[in-house]
Computed example of a mutant assay.
Amino acid sequence: MDDLDDLMTLTTVMALNNGVLRRRDHRTSRAGFDRLVRSGAIVRVLPGTFVNAQLITSRLSRCAAALATYPGSLLWGTDAVAALTRTLDKTAFGRQDTVGLAHPQSRYAAPGVRWTRRTVPAEHRVRIDGLRCASASYLAVEAAARDQGAMIERFLRAGLVKPAELSDVLPALASTKGHRERCRVVRASQDNPWSGGERRLQALLRKHRITGWVANAELMIDSRRCFPDVLFEAARLVLEFDGYGVHTKPEVFESDRRRQNALVIGDYRVLRYTWKQLTEDPDTLIAEVRTLMARQITSDPDQT
């Protein structure tokens, strides 16, 4: 009966910890633990750490095992991003795969783990599905020194961060490499760009001192939710950036047309721009925007 109780306890603990058991946490259940090992029900994946054999290819379980083995660490890199976006188990964990971990001190090489030396302040740590991880805002701002804001855009688009949260992270990274570039990207992200093209479009509007717009703000039209790339509410004008790589996908193409129809029916005018137009003919873009804004002012008696 004692062995059975131990097995039930161990099984329950394992289920609550993403399929992970550490031997040192169950010294009083040594017989039950050994029985699970001998039967092949659990498999050793790191020193003193075992995983439910049925979850041996689960990336979530393997990340949980790495964190259990090294208590002072946090998920880092692509594994941290996957945890935050809850896509860890989108791909299976292979024999040669590793788990990315951050730790304040240098760590010896360990099979199945890749280390980054990083001290993440407590206010920028979170738990996702039981996994210790750096926050979305911290990861995105840290990466901005290398990726020109791509992760910031991705997390803004997914609603994982808000523009106002980004600058709060900067002091924690002040002494790290690439901080000047990081600060520049964060400043350029305050208007909520969801893509590199939108970032470029917003910068162009700011350069020409065109104001009165918001980016990716929720707009309800006949109970349909829209998030226009750039919205001039007073002028009933919407600017949309069409990146070729995304907007030629069938599902995006269809969604764009439905959204544009909804905007037109809602009495909004829509101007669409491509990367080529944005980079090679910005003067025409600005002239078109100003022309439509001027028409709105002259046609609206309240503006005269």
Rank of each mutant, 00 (worst) to 15 (best):
R38W: 15
A31P: 05
R236S: 05
R199L: 11
F227C: 02
H247L: 04
E251V: 10
S29G: 03
R38P: 09
D242W: 06
T279L: 12
A262E: 15
R38C: 08
D300V: 02
P301M: 06
S175V: 10
I210Q: 08
R35G: 02
T87N: 05
R269L: 13
T78S: 11
L88H: 00
T211L: 13
N17D: 04
L292C: 11
N18C: 10
V120L: 08
Q105P: 05
A102T: 12
R118W: 12
R127V: 08
D242N: 11
H179W: 09
L285Q: 03
R30P: 09
A92S: 14
T274H: 04
S58V: 07
L239D: 04
R259E: 03
A158H: 15
R38T: 14
R107F: 12
R180W: 11
A68Y: 01
N216R: 11
V120G: 03
A294T: 09
A215M: 02
F33H: 10
G266S: 13
C63P: 00
V185E: 00
G243S: 00
D5C: 04
V169P: 03
A31C: 11
L139R: 01
E218H: 12
A143W: 05
T176W: 13
R146T: 05
T304I: 05
R30A: 15
T304K: 02
R187F: 15
G94F: 12
W115T: 00
D25A: 05
N216A: 11
T274V: 07
H208K: 10
R200D: 11
L16S: 15
G197H: 01
F155Q: 09
Y108T: 13
E165F: 05
K162W: 09
V81I: 03
P47R: 14
P163W: 10
T57D: 08
T28K: 02
S299T: 07
T87Q: 01
Y108N: 15
D267M: 15
D168V: 08
T274I: 04
T87M: 02
F241P: 01
E288A: 10
E288N: 13
R24D: 14
A68L: 02
L21M: 08
G130C: 03
I152K: 02
R236L: 09
L36C: 10
K207W: 12
H247D: 01
R200H: 14
F155A: 10
A82C: 01
K90L: 07
V126E: 06
T87Y: 02
D302G: 10
H124K: 00
Y108D: 14
C63R: 04
F155Y: 15
S61F: 09
T49Q: 12
L36S: 03
D242C: 09
Q96Y: 04
R184L: 11
T176C: 12
V43N: 04
A164M: 10
K162S: 13
T211F: 13
S299P: 03
R182Y: 00
D300G: 04
S135H: 07
Q96T: 11
V113K: 12
V99P: 05
